[in-house]
Nucleic acid binder design. Sequence first.
DNA 1: CCGTCGTGCGTACGTTGTTCGCATGGACGG
DNA 2: CCGTCCATGCGAACAACGTACGCACGACGG
Lengths: 238, 238
Amino acid sequence: MSTDEIPSVWTRPRRSREQPALSRRQIVAEAVRLLDAEGLDALTMRRLGTRLEAGATSLYRHVANRDELIELVVDEVYGEIDIPDTDPADWRGAATTCAHSIRSMILRHPWIASVLGQVGLSYLGPNVMRLNERMMAMLDEAGFPPAEAGPAISTVVAFVIGTGLNEAAWLTMLARSGQTEQDWYRRFGPSLGQAMEPFPHLRAHFGANADQEPTRRREENFAYGLARVLDGLSPRRT
Amino acid sequence: MSTDEIPSVWTRPRRSREQPALSRRQIVAEAVRLLDAEGLDALTMRRLGTRLEAGATSLYRHVANRDELIELVVDEVYGEIDIPDTDPADWRGAATTCAHSIRSMILRHPWIASVLGQVGLSYLGPNVMRLNERMMAMLDEAGFPPAEAGPAISTVVAFVIGTGLNEAAWLTMLARSGQTEQDWYRRFGPSLGQAMEPFPHLRAHFGANADQEPTRRREENFAYGLARVLDGLSPRRT
DNA sequence: CCGTCGTGCGTACGTTGTTCGCATGGACGG
DNA sequence: CCGTCCATGCGAACAACGTACGCACGACGG
């Protein structure tokens, strides 16, 4: 007779089978969308729940906690990286396209920079394992000495991640303040000039390569560094 | 007459001039200690306040945000990195010791891995600027073409940061679960073997260089990668 | 027909960052 | 010497967070 039961009866008879309700894949996919749209701070259990038209705590039936969700999300975006299987002769070309693929993944999901330090590069997500396997196969078939294949991969991945981290953090900061790159330089150019005043070498190099558009310049710097890293790795072959 | 005033009178007549009370430097220093001891999650305004024998909200008189505090803390530990000014002939040796100095800073403060993605590598903290200036001077005097000095520094720094990020995240994860490296492998060895089962190349390389102690192996992998990166940069010198 | 199970969710608790306004006591002008 | 001001510390309060708990419901196996 208590009216307690009425609301639950009325508000939620909407249990229908056409709606698969909630699933782990759905949750992870929507989390990626939310992260892409609004960044890491916006990834709240409540907000994610609302986006899925579900209660916040419903997510816990499919995901242990927020940390596990983040690990799943990271592995998910690692899955976007694909490595073409090319002929062993062109291991350098394959490594180059692989590196670019990783970098563009990072730039597509800049929030990953805020998260990489918490999950590390090496855990056991299926997509990460597959990526490592492919890279390992690449260097094996190219004839790298077995003892060096691992360190070589770590080296180029460390470079790619380090560069991507830097760029992603910069872009995230810009996005959070709602500014474009030009806005920022116009706004903080003076302060920056003042901060660089005691540093002659920095002043001298400031504005180098400034003729290109920022995005293009970042790409070329990345390509340059990657080429140098692969140069260093090259002569060790066989 | 109300007893409201009594506690404040009794509990806090301890305003004495010998105690400089609170200062920005003190706060940052204590924050570093807290971070080193208990990691990023433990850096709470209340806990930090208590450690300084102060109220939590007192910190806001000297620091705008938690975010600003973190930026200050990052610049603080960047200050621990020193670059010896060596002769221009041995730029490679100088770069090597500089890279090792950065890496050991990261390993001394592993929490920085969780934070690097939020502040980026390039902001305008004085210590960071000084570090960049020194590295720039190093390569300038070594005769690097001006257009390449910047990208070259970015390359080696990206490698060092990437590697350090990876190692720091791994160590943080171990520390948080209170395990040693051997513990972890004993505990998750089977799961790991199972996860690697579909990946022949990973299986083949697993356990390579396993004869050395983990710390030593990480050091050697880092030295190897750094040497290769510098190899790649070397021939570009005029 | 009845128990059991998987799943969604309302409620609630403890903790966090941060704001606000008050209290305090030294500095300083008269 | 006194009154005023200002920098600083802090208690209380608030919104938002992650998450534990327990109940409700539909499906299903006996």
